[in-house]
Structures are given as C-alpha cells and as structure tokens.
C-alpha cells in the first residue's frame, strides 16, 4: 500500500499570540499555509478571539511573509461565530483553503465551534496543539527559537511586572509554580495571559517594539504597543 496526498492548503486562525503562531509553524512544516485569518473583536472579553494588540497581526503577517485576511466583529457571544464562519468562507473563496488550523489547546468551547464551522463549510479542521502538555509546550516554544512577550494579564496573582516580560526558561518555571499553587493555566488557556510573538524560525523579519505603555488595575492589565517596526534578520 502507498499513501500519497497533495499538500492541503490551509488558513490559520491567527491572533499573533504564541498559540496561533506555533500552530502556523507546525502547519507550515507539513502543509501549505495559504493565508492567516484574523477577527478584530471590539469586545475585550470575547469568548473566541484574542484582543490585546490584535491590530498588530498585519505586521506579524508581513514578517511571516503570509497574506492576512482580516475581518471586524462586534464580539457578541454567538454573533462572532457567524462572523468567523463568514471570514473562513471568504478565505476559502479568496485563497482556496481546504482546511483551517487553530491554536486551541484545552478549550472545548472554541474547538467545538470551529469544528462545526469547518463541518458546515466542508473544510478540514486541524488543532496541532490540542491537549498538549502546557509546560512542555512553553519550553518547546523557547527551544525552537520563538521570542514571545506577555501583553496581557487577567488573573490573580499576576502583577504589572509581567506586562512586557519576555518568555524565558525562568519565566516558564515561575508559571509552573503558579500552576501548582493557584491552578493558573501555564499557557493562559483560561484567559489568564495573552501573548505576542515578535520573532521565530518562520519569521522572515522580526518585530521590534519602539514604544509601549501599561495599563493595570486589580490583577488585570494590558501592554499597549504604540510603536512597532519590522527589522531585517
């Protein structure tokens, strides 16, 4: 018996955070990533979509050398799913994608909804980080050469010092300790953390933050990136 299948053209649901970037990385190792798909949510508490610095995905897409299909959404609980389906349908029509890739790790809510949308559109659905051991995954991100910074904290006991911090091995150890002590998901699966990727092995250029500010109150804060540029590697 022989098995040979053509590379499947894929669209990646892309937020610019570590999970969607690493999912892109895995997808590019085996298939053709035809485009990135971003929903710009106006709801900072969206159930489905990463929001801090989401406008910066266009620069990340440029750094990755991939086209970006970006659509707005009000971010209302079920309406945003219709917006997601419409965006994926547009990606299918514009880029000929045959499947969708997500960075879902633990969220059954997100995974089920994406699976149903793909089923409705007759597309493949891939979740290459699904159920991954989170601490091992964070270490792998570093060993594979990704530069990740923390752009949002939304839970106790994260203080303002976490904002803008680069993910390092020491940082991963601290996250592992917080997981053991407070049951905080190490990779922020419960919405405790948001991240942004500035560089990595699939980046043709790296991103450099020139100016940023922090807003923080009561264990909730964001790093607002005010000026950022692409730099040759």
């Amino acid at each position: 018996m022989t098995w040979t299948h053509d590379l499947v053209k894929l669209g990646v649901l892309f937020s610019g955070g570590k999970d969607s970037v690493f999912a892109t990385y895995r997808a590019m190792q085996r298939n053709q990533v035809a485009c990135l798909i971003t929903l710009i949510s106006q709801n900072p508490d969206s159930y489905m979509f990463h929001t801090p610095n989401i406008q910066r995905t266009s620069l990340q897409a440029e750094a990755l050398g991939l086209p970006l299909l970006s659509r707005p959404t009000l971010g209302e609980k079920e309406k945003e799913l219709q917006d997601l389906e419409a965006a994926i349908a547009d990606a299918r029509d514009e880029y000929g994608i045959e499947g969708v890739v997500t960075g879902a790790i633990e969220s059954v809510y997100q995974a089920v909804r994406t699976q149903r949308i793909c089923q409705a559109l007759d597309l493949w659905c891939f979740n290459p980080l699904w159920q991954i051991n989170q601490v091992d995954y964070l270490r792998q991100l570093l060993s594979e050469g990704f530069q990740v910074i923390i752009t949002g904290v939304f839970a106790y006991p994260f203080d303002a010092s976490w904002l803008g911090q680069e993910l390092t091995l020491e940082c991963v150890c601290r996250l592992e300790e917080l997981w053991k002590r407070y049951k905080v998901s190490p990779s922020g699966e419960g919405g405790e953390l948001e991240t942004m990727v500035l560089d990595g092995p699939i980046f043709q250029k790296r991103l450099e933050i020139l100016r940023s500010s922090r807003s923080y109150c009561n264990f909730s804060g964001r790093l607002l990136i005010e000026e950022i540029r692409l730099v040759d590697k």
């Binding site: 098995w3 895995r26 085996r30 290459p128 699904w130």
Partner: peptide, 17 residues
Amino acid sequence: IEKDSLSKYEFVHPIAD
C-alpha cells in the same frame, strides 16, 4: 490519512503523552 500528518498532533500525541 497519511504518515506524519498534521492531525497526528491532535489524535495520537495526546494519547502517547
């Protein structure tokens, strides 16, 4: 569908882990 597909991460690796 094939050896070392993208789905392997999703359906085989969690079992192995």
